[in-house]
Design a protein around this nucleic acid. Structure first.
Length: 491
RNA sequence: GCCGCCUUAGCUCAGUAGGUUAGAGCGCUAGAUUGUGGAUCUAGAGGUCCCUGGUUCGAAACCAGGAGGCGGUACCA
């Protein structure tokens, strides 16, 4: 039964959570990154590049233990026995960089950074183990003015990336307000930190699980549809009411800040937080026309945010090819983290920043099909006579010099196959010169896009072939002109 | 990590109460239509039926373990 003599070959495949990318996809991402970077640069942020690997202790709490050194991050032990890890975001490397080069840097230090980051966790739709982030941070400036600027720039960057103003919302909250809530419900003391974490996790799920789900999580616990059970925070009923009211403060037509203020009145950090949000509001030009809302149901990272926090979300659910909603997560987010550099320096350095999740954004735009038609391929010059290759390459050169992407067909196939190739490359135009044209000093320009459009209502192939409505001839000397005119017509 | 479902051709999927040469559509390759892609016709290639082990005269099918995928859930800087 088993076949003999069959060599066992490795299976060609990409590791899970990673992906190959080709052609148009890369071009699109490059374009989106360029647009976001341009926004950051126009605000005066300088580009920074740091290596993919960092010493693991510089990245934070994920010191690899012997059992699970790769929990969350990809780590390996260098030949000098030190642990190094692939960066999981761009903020930790920034903190390291600032601490390392503190004295000569201008303060505040404004930098942006674009690049891949890696996380060793379960992949899902729009969720990869390698993805691109696009961050901008201001280090060394206290709240709220730097926060206001970052927040406004965040909106500009997302818009520049191709999401319209009415398609997304930047939600703003403040960690201090959440602290105020904890004071109100008696969770402020040191030994209650675990319950606090628990409550924050539950609150973070408000948008996904809704009021009912969060009530369960705050109380006794919740069983999900797969039968798994999550233990609850076991709060008193009245405290649950307070938390729910807090989460719902942004709903309805009232003013969210006012609602919050009533809930957390009398707490020091709560009032500080409200004041900071007011400061942000008043420091953003044309605030009312921007898609920014105060919404305290946003929690984000549990550990390090110390002040204002931002999160950008799509307004409407993203659907996949089958029309099913996809959990794609936020478009990006950020906030103030005054303690991060202190890990290295011992002194608190105030800092605030945002991160745009470019890979997610592109997945979403792809699903929403708002990135427009496919990027056109190159003009293909058919190679009908092998002894004329130099003259074909000459044509390609002329087109390139005129700024037109062009290539000569280099395979070994016949006429029909060459056109098929051009079709597959989604070439807009094919340039044809066989013996007939060459004798007459001409070329044939074939408008592939137009042909494709016309062919939709073609029935008789014979008539189609005889007419050839989508092509015309031109003098060899007019090559560039004729191609450019054809391309222009397609726009 | 936990729970559930799934894995047969490049893709989408049939299939058999365990029984010789495992199928379809699309795609692919080649040819026809006398130098023309998308139409039509003809032919062809391509499968360790996810892997390993077990039960059996016989396993793609049944059992166990593993891997991968999907969905939920937990964690998430």
């Amino acid at each position: 039964m088993a076949k003999k003599n069959k060599p066992s070959r490795p299976k060609a495949r990409t590791p899970r959570g990673f992906s190959d990318r080709l052609g148009a996809e890369i071009i699109k991402e490059r374009e989106v990154l360029a647009r976001i970077s341009a926004v950051y640069e126009s605000y005066g942020f300088d580009p920074l590049e740091t290596p993919a690997f960092e010493y693991t202790d510089a990245l934070g709490k994920f010191l690899p233990d012997v059992d699970r050194p790769n929990q969350g991050v990809f780590s390996l032990q260098d030949d000098d026995d030190q642990w190094i890890s692939l960066r999981y975001d761009l903020t930790a490397p920034l903190a390291r960089f600032v601490a390392q080069n503190f004295d000569p840097l201008p303060k505040p230090f404004r930098r942006y950074q674009v690049g891949p980051v890696w996380r060793n966790e379960k992949p899902g739709p729009g969720r990869f183990r390698q993805f691109t982030q696009c961050d901008a941070d201001t280090v060394g400036a206290p709240a709220p003015y730097a926060d206001a600027e970052i927040c406004a720039m965040f909106c500009d960057a997302i818009e520049a990336a191709g999401v319209a103003r009415n398609e997304f919302t930047v939600k703003v909250s403040n960690r201090k307000i959440v602290d105020g809530l904890f004071e109100k419900i008696g969770l402020a003391s040191e030994e209650k930190w675990e319950t606090r974490l628990n409550v924050m996790r539950s609150m973070d799920k408000f948008d996904r699980l809704g009021e009912v789900g969060v009530r369960h999580l705050l109380g006794g616990g919740r069983a999900d549809e797969s039968g798994d059970y999550t233990d609850g925070a076991k709060l008193d009923p009245e405290h649950i009411e307070t938390v729910i009211a807090f989460l719902q403060s942004a709903e309805g037509d009232g003013d969210p800040l006012g609602n919050i203020e009533k809930l957390i009145t009398g707490t020091k950090s709560g009032e500080d937080g409200v004041a900071e949000l007011n400061g942000i509001k008043s420091a953003i030009p044309d605030f009312a026309r921007r898609p920014i809302v105060i919404d305290c149901s946003v929690i984000r990272g549990l550990e390090y945010y110390t002040g204002p926090i931002f999160e950008a979300d799509f307004n409407e659910a993203i659907l996949d090819e089958k029309g099913k909603p996809v959990q794609i997560g936020s478009l990006g987010g950020g906030g103030r983290y005054d303690g991060l550099v202190a890990r290295f320096k011992g002194v608190e350095v105030p800092a605030v920043g945002v991160s745009v999740g470019v890979s997610r954004l592109l997945t979403a735009l792809e699903l929403k099909k708002s990135l427009g038609a496919n990027t056109a391929g190159p003009v293909v010059i058919l190679a009908l006579e092998k002894d004329q290759m130099a003259s074909y390459q000459q044509m390609a050169m002329e087109l390139r010099n005129a700024g037109v992407r062009a290539e000569v067909y280099l395979g070994g196939s016949n006429f029909a196959k060459q056109l098929k190739y051009a079709d597959k490359r989604s070439s807009p135009v094919a340039v044809i010169q066989g013996p007939d044209e060459r004798g007459a000093g001409e070329i044939t320009i074939k408008d592939l896009a137009l042909g494709a459009a016309l062919s939709k209502d073609i029935e008789d192939n014979k008539a189609w072939r005889e007419d050839q409505p989508a092509q015309f001839s031109a003098p060899r000397g007019d090559l560039v002109k004729a191609v450019k005119e054809t391309l222009a017509r397609e726009r």
